[in-house]
Design a protein around this nucleic acid. Sequence first.
DNA 1: TGTACATCAGTGAACGCGCGTTCACTGATGTAC
DNA 2: TGTACATCAGTGAACGCGCGTTCACTGATGTAC
Lengths: 210, 210
Amino acid sequence: MAERTKGQQTEAELKAAARRLLVSRSYAEIKVTDITSEAGKAAGVFYRYFTDKDALLRALAADFDEALHAVVVKHVGEQHTLATVEDVRAHVEAFWTAYERYLPERRGILQASMLSSEFQRFHHGLRDRLVDVWADHIAATPAQADLPADRARMSALAVVCLLESFCYSQFAEDGTAKDAAAAIETLTALIATGLLGTPPRRGGRARARS
Amino acid sequence: MAERTKGQQTEAELKAAARRLLVSRSYAEIKVTDITSEAGKAAGVFYRYFTDKDALLRALAADFDEALHAVVVKHVGEQHTLATVEDVRAHVEAFWTAYERYLPERRGILQASMLSSEFQRFHHGLRDRLVDVWADHIAATPAQADLPADRARMSALAVVCLLESFCYSQFAEDGTAKDAAAAIETLTALIATGLLGTPPRRGGRARARS
DNA sequence: TGTACATCAGTGAACGCGCGTTCACTGATGTAC
DNA sequence: TGTACATCAGTGAACGCGCGTTCACTGATGTAC
């Protein structure tokens, strides 16, 4: 932690200020001077640390990317299947939690992806890696075993689109979700049943399958 | 059709030019002068017909809204259920087709909803009406009959998020989708199974249910 | 421990680019008699 | 049918706003001897 030079400290403060602003305002609406004054600094200091506003978002995105990668590495070797509703719920919960923690980055990246093709590519890249993970899971799911690989990938993309878009819709301007538990259950029910073909009966007995 | 004054004609040409540009470029990247020169007009003429760029998007959105409303009115009285996979496929197909036809409007509105809170509200309003329709369907579906109303609405929102976001991802820069049939099947499978709990076996015999 | 100099961090007024928007004007179309 | 005037459609150079970005400067911190 500590042992940061003054400059590193300021850079981190600018990033933190941008993250705070991104929760309540869109990336396009945030001016460079909004960020510096949120950080309690003069306008000019921004350009000591970033070439422009996009560079700051890229830096945030890189941090986010790195953090996600760390999570993925951590989970390598662990059992990853989608055999049961609980497996799906665990995945949905993990996505939800990561979304919540990196809400400013996710909003900023998604919004910027609709502004410029540079960030569109970046957003695509991030999403693709997530789609890979889901595609693997789907391919390894007995219920989907007869699906060709490209169709499995398309299903995975649909799931990721659902997760991203629904999560984006659930967090209010203060960065909190009204009913996280219900949201996670709704996603789990739709995805688990959609992929596994077994309706989740929370707390009830599993129904006999034919 | 005919009997349009010169002015109405020009207004329509400006809208058409904007629609063309929206397919390949983002709303934010399109300048007012891009639209006028695409329409083969001088810059100044724009402001005879629209107060600013947002006003043109609002006009496009209003056209779109009206067209959708007409479709909804047309379908009132028709049987609308989600009892079978075919019902779901019909709904997905209808959404897909409307999305394709109004691709510029959908892109423009979604992109603008990430720029300003005005268009965010507008986008929300559009989406909400679609969510209402799906929520009614879900509430009337036997497999979901025991779901409380607010959870049914949340499921409906998830379905609409999925449809919007997946469709947005499927159309390339030239406004065409690579594999529309596969996309519709993927969405149908996920939604039908997710909501009905019955895996669709296209072309195969329906499996005996327990 | 003190002085002199170098580098780093930060300031904020001023500058200027890009783009939206205006406006004085031209040409076309419509109307009155 | 022709002329005179009014309105409408369209032009494009010029203007100016807003915001990103610069830069000459100040003050703080670090280093050498």
